[in-house]
Simulated assay, not measured.
Amino acid sequence: MKLAFILAYKNLVGSGLRTWLNVSVLSFAFVLIIFYNGMIDGWNEQARRDGIAWEYGGGQLLNGQYDPYDPFTLQDGHGVLPAGENEGLIPVLMRQASIYPEGRMLSVTLKGIDPSQTTLELPTHLLSEHSANLPVIIGKRMAEAANLEAGDEVLIRWRDKDGTYDAGNVTVVDVFDTNVPAVDNGQMWISIHELWQMTGLENHATLYIAETPGNSIDVKGWEFRSQKDLLKDLSDIIEMKKVSGSIMYLLLLAIALLAIFDTQVLSIFRRQREIGTYIALGMTRLRVVWLFTIEGSMYSLLATAVGCVYGTPIFIYLATAGIGMPTASQNSGVIMAARIFPVYGAGLIFGTMVLVVVSATIVSFLPARKIATMNPVDALKGKMQ
């Protein structure tokens, strides 16, 4: 075994530029696989954390008539939980409304929430601390769309429980910054006590947010969605991104492996007399095959070593400084921070190493199988069968 590694190493070093070209391409594929998957894992971790902190809490209990994907269900998609069933739940009432900033009309979703809640990171405490008649808080994207700032007043129109229109002025008391577009784009947050008075829907809620993750809540006429259910759409997007990205780096890996395959074929063709000498000296065909397989697999070992040398400082920097994302991506409706901090776990790094080494070993073994069928005499003469 030791002799095989020594011979393989000397042959690789003797190949010179050809060896380092193969190692360079394979090491780049190795680094790219870790970089891309680390970025996707970092995005996934950040998005899950932000989604739970700003929107989902420990899970949501939705009214049976409310469909989050159908805004027309907001009018009738609300109700009152039976007495004793709302412990540990934060009520949220949602109503369609329109605001008129600078003479324009914008459709918004007016969301009422308990100002004393601490489960979500929304600064709802400001709704009870401000002296304005109807204080509201909005996100930075909503503020940009409506050209509003903290302290501005704007006319708002809504419908009460009977469908009658009513209007009044609301005061923006805070503009918060969040990565979760579902609590920002087209949203206005108001005290649920104020919204109950405005609509006449006392104690009604469109959904309830669980303060802590726990078991499923079974209430007739309501549907409970756990954190896993609520994050399913995000998980599907992440998986789709991983699959689409894998096509790119697998093509690069395939190019590197093809180069190794061609190198091994050429090496076996040019070193027939060497192979015949090994067999004539008593080395079994299997050991000769193993020698050439090790020689090919050592490309991957050198590639991982080279990749670690220049990839490690890059990964450390990116994990610390993050990767800036364009503003357009943050307005796509998907939870995405302005900077994504990649996560390079030990499983990702060692899994990629195994993928590269195993792939290179298999590719090296395929042409080396030809040695097992060689005639030693013909090999010594340099004749390939």
Score class of each variant (00 low, 15 high):
I349N: 07
A321E: 14
I323S: 04
M353D: 08
Y310V: 05
V354G: 08
Q330M: 15
L302D: 01
P313K: 06
L318S: 09
L355R: 04
G333A: 10
F365V: 12
M325R: 01
M298K: 03
G311M: 01
Y317H: 10
I314Y: 08
A360V: 06
M325F: 05
T320I: 07
A321C: 01
L302N: 03
Q330L: 15
A303F: 00
L302P: 00
G333D: 04
T352E: 09
F350E: 05
V354W: 06
T304C: 15
V309A: 14
G324V: 12
A319F: 01
G345K: 03
F315W: 14
G322E: 04
L318A: 10
A321V: 05
V358E: 06
T327S: 14
T361E: 02
G347I: 07
V343H: 05
Y310W: 11
V363D: 12
V343G: 00
S300P: 02
C308G: 15
V343W: 01
I323V: 14
V309K: 07
G333H: 06
I362G: 06
A303E: 02
T320S: 15
V306L: 15
S359F: 01
I335K: 08
C308R: 02
T320W: 08
P342F: 09
F341V: 11
M298N: 07
I335M: 12
I335G: 07
V356M: 06
V306S: 06
V309D: 01
I362F: 11
A337H: 10
G311R: 01
V356T: 09
F350Y: 11
C308K: 02
A338N: 13
V357F: 13
A337N: 13
A338Q: 14
S329H: 05
M298R: 02
V309I: 15
A360L: 01
C308Y: 10
I323Y: 07
S329D: 14
S332Q: 07
M298P: 04
A338P: 01
Y299A: 02
A321F: 04
R339P: 00
G351V: 03
S359N: 06
M353H: 02
Y344S: 05
Y310S: 10
T361Y: 01
M325Y: 00
L355M: 15
N331T: 12
Y310H: 09
T327M: 13
A338V: 03
G345T: 12
S364V: 03
F350R: 11
